[in-house]
Design a protein around this nucleic acid. Structure first.
Lengths: 368, 368
DNA sequence: TTGAAAGCGCTAACAC
DNA sequence: GTGTTAGCGCTTTCAA
């Protein structure tokens, strides 16, 4: 455990604390208030809870003493009884992205409003670490968990341990199975983006711009989200009566260099694409760079649009058309869903959040 | 409190739980193991701690039973005794930036390694909220706190309440007073960027590129960091024998539209700048946009460099020269410093982290 | 209206 | 080597 609280708990009351490290003093407890007022701990507890079973006079005295002594309730003691901390646990696959930090922000704001704190953990896209995180949160007896699974995660059985202890789980952004395709295991609530619709709409936009050879630039990943976006793309091509060409469906590792290579390879085809739909911001910016290097004009030679939450997409030249996930909203909704479960609603809920499409210079050939 | 744990704790054991919400069961405790094995709770506790005062046979039996019964230690009970949770509290002024999310990531990785979880709170640049956050963390009895103060925060006395309870505090990225200018209050540890050196180096780089009319584009904010960066800029001008012209020191709100206006105003001067140093990424990208709109070439007409952690700065045209804070490292160092305090080191430590300068097309006129 | 006491899970001091 | 017990701070019966 590496607990060092030890040193603080066994406060040796050393006479000469170095520097401003003023002697650690036990925070005031109900006992302190009680003994000061010469009444019982139970009465103090009741008064502080605003119970009507306490005389006004007593309550007043207690309240004032508490204020004066700067009493603050010890959640831990409380939690030992109730079995859970007023804390929402969050697991994200990688924290250092605008997307996840705003999901987190959304969760946090709703949680804070309801008196819950947020413990967040990072699985770094590792299934093993995700399992560790789940165990940690269980050990902390958090009230509930919101998670975005890793790319490696193929089933959610490791979350069942939480459910077994009565800790509700909500998946956000990345879910597994869920929706209709419920499998043997527990069905968990989820809040996800409407990926199919988003990709379909973006593709149809490109069609309306006059593009006929529309490519899609995907990351790797077995994520449902990727499959859904591809599905929306294909759906749109069908609707438009355009063929689905395998050589226009490209996969790249999620780094700039790889994505540039993959884009170059597509543009080297005998019939290169006249539009690209990139599935995330790294791919989007890399595609832009690759096209510019080849001296191609966007959107004239190739129209470009991609999923991205990077605000600076609007500032570059050409400004980039993007599809934004409403990440903060997704966090908020996930937390609201969790709070619902915490209040007793046991039925899983599946929320689908629409995306926002921002058409900018990189894909606009004509006014729509 | 809005505690809904209630429902979970008073588990009504309703016979027909809807769906997979398997009946919430109290997690196994030492007591369960003890009674199963017919030994005392204390022995189980000792065995699990690997105490030598237990026979190997007993230890084995306990270990196996624990594994089998999927026992996991209840931190809360433990913490009720020790007075603190194995949790590091973090307060950031706004979570939704690459900078703070990587600081957080750095903190988290070090904390996790030592068995600590991380509770993060967002002050949204509001002094009042920061105070609330501090109180919450105190109420949670976190082991220690790492904070980045808001722009409004002018002193740290609200953190003294933590120190008074023996909860160590470390400031990261944004500190107050500190260093030499210690004031009456407690002196807290800090981990900050070497802002003076960073701005000085960037300015000297511009000088070496042949720029003589170097402007600085600042955000508002009374942050020490801003003052330091400006100081480094001025220092460099002095060194280079260049005058400090007040009309080249511009202030803008931190949004693209304002920054574009401010940049335009500078470029409308009779003697417009031939270089701009932007103090954050919003200002940097906005300046780029403004200059491009005026048909100015970067770096020929105006050399541009700015503080930024946005990786896509490398992908735009011209690629942008940047000064990056080593945000993740700052988080790691802050957490290490905190752990040091947790282990008993009471002396405040002030770490200064150097920045990384990446010269790209927007400011490179010649090889250096 | 108030108090006394039990108990949440765990550790540590003190028996034996 | 193992058991017994007290106690961390709080809420909640049960009595008075």
């Amino acid at each position: 455990m590496g607990r060092s609280g030890k040193s603080a708990s066994s406060r040796p009351a050393s006479p000469k604390e170095p520097l401003g490290a003023s002697a650690p003093v036990r925070p005031v407890s109900l006992k302190d208030i009680a003994s000061r007022l010469g009444i019982s701990i139970a009465t103090v507890s009741r008064a502080l809870q605003g119970s009507t079973a306490v005389s006004n006079a007593t309550r007043e005295r207690v309240m004032e003493a508490a204020r004066e002594m700067r009493y603050s309730k010890n959640f831990i003691a409380d939690s030992l009884r109730s079995g859970t901390l007023p804390v929402v646990g969050v697991i994200v696959p990688h924290g250092v992205t605008l997307f996840y930090s705003s999901v987190l922000d959304g969760i946090e704001s709703v949680a804070a409003r309801e008196g819950y704190a947020v413990i967040s953990m990072n699985s770094h896209e590792s299934y093993e670490e995700e399992c560790r995180n789940v165990r940690s949160l269980a050990a902390f007896h958090v009230a509930g968990v919101i998670a975005s699974v890793t790319q490696e995660t193929e089933d959610c059985s490791h979350f069942d341990a939480l459910a077994a202890e009565g800790i509700p789980v909500v998946f956000v952004a990345r879910a597994i199975g869920g929706g209709q395709s419920k499998r043997e295991g527990t069905d968990y609530s989820s809040v996800t983006a409407d990926s199919v619709a988003a990709a379909r709409r973006a593709t149809l936009h490109l069609v309306r711009q006059g593009c006929r050879r529309i490519a899609i630039l995907c990351g790797p990943g077995r994520l449902r989200m990727v499959a859904e976006r591809k599905h929306g793309y294909i759906e749109a091509l069908h609707e438009a009566g355009l063929p689905v060409r395998p050589d226009y469906v490209a996969y790249s590792a999620i780094d700039t260099a790889s994505a540039i290579d993959v884009t170059d390879a597509m543009m080297d085809l005998p019939e290169p694409p006249d539009a690209i739909l990139a599935l995330n911001d790294t791919l989007l910016f890399a595609a832009m760079k690759a096209l510019r290097r080849r001296g191609l004009d966007m959107p004239r030679d190739v129209a470009l649009i991609g999923f991205s939450d990077v605000e600076y997409a609007a500032d570059v030249s050409p400004s980039l058309s993007t599809i934004e996930d409403r990440s903060r909203l997704m966090g908020e909704e996930a937390c609201l869903t969790l709070l619902g479960h915490l209040r007793g609603n046991a039925k899983p809920i599946h929320k689908v959040i629409p995306t926002v499409q921002r058409i900018r210079e990189s894909s606009r050939r004509k006014m729509e």
